[in-house]
Design a protein around this nucleic acid. Structure first.
Lengths: 145, 145
DNA sequence: ATCTTTGCAAACTTTTTGCACCAAT
DNA sequence: ATTGGTGCAAAAAGTTTGCAAAGAT
């Protein structure tokens, strides 16, 4: 099952935290578990809600502090979507997002699709694009038909 | 001078507000003046600060309410940048933004530069992109050399 | 005179911080 | 026993709202 197959990944990430000289704690493990399980992007508040199903005493501030630690270690990225929402996702998981304005689905988009733009920007403007993950909005295939 | 040449544009926008059945007020005129004068994007807080130079009693809430009105009338757009900041700009002024991470300069980018991506998304994913103004980050020409 | 808009204060949302207590090493 | 991490409460930062007074028509 899904949970089982993610255990190694969670353990690997916890290992990196410990290797950095920080401590192994339930809170950190739980936050990482949720991020790994969600297979994509998730908001800080949603992480808190899900973690609190198992650990009701866990505070949002701990979630934020854990996310900050994970960002310092380059394990997760924080992404500001074009609709104003803020989400987090694993860093090994580099991609943009196609968000459907109608059904709310989010589809991943390989960074390669922005490469032509990256090239154009450099040639026409001398601007070196840093590929921050983007949230692009529109209508998905299903909602268009 | 700049102020002089913008007067007509400000007046035209105020005219649209009046035409919509709303009232002509100093607050609205001042907010529009600042947005027109800034030639681009500006945050709600910066608008408030600049307006307060002339009208010290003007409250931020009035700025937000005015911005909401201007958005309802399709006069300004609100844009969420990829760095988490929120800015407003005139709607006739459709463009993306190239924000330099080093010097903070913001350069405008015609929507046409995303058109190849728009086409690719439709062909490869069946996704219909709605061109919301984007804030793209990287290094500008000057800072690269 | 009427009905809209404003200023002020207060609420709300999201994220950060100070501090005493608890837990991992 | 230390030092780092957590919960709680409170503070910031950004935005929205209720209400009575001021202003535009």
């Amino acid at each position: 099952m899904a949970h089982e197959s993610h255990r190694n990944q969670v353990e690997e990430i916890v290992g990196r935290i410990v290797a950095s000289g920080r401590r192994r704690t339930m809170s950190r493990q739980a936050v990482i578990q949720v991020i790994v399980d969600c297979h994509g992007h998730i908001s800080a508040d949603d992480i808190a809600t899900r973690v609190q199903e198992d650990f009701p005493s866990m505070d949002v501030s701990t979630v934020y502090r854990t996310l900050e630690t994970l960002r310092e270690l380059d394990i997760v990225d924080r992404v500001y979507f074009a609709d104003g929402s803020t989400v987090y996702h694993l860093r090994d998981h580099q991609h943009h997002h196609l968000c459907c304005e109608k059904c709310g689905s989010v589809q991943e988009l390989p960074v390669s699709l922005m490469e032509s733009v990256e090239k154009d920007l450099l040639e026409e403007f001398g601007f070196e694009l840093h590929q921050r993950p983007l949230g692009l909005f529109g209508l998905c295939k299903a909602c268009r038909s």
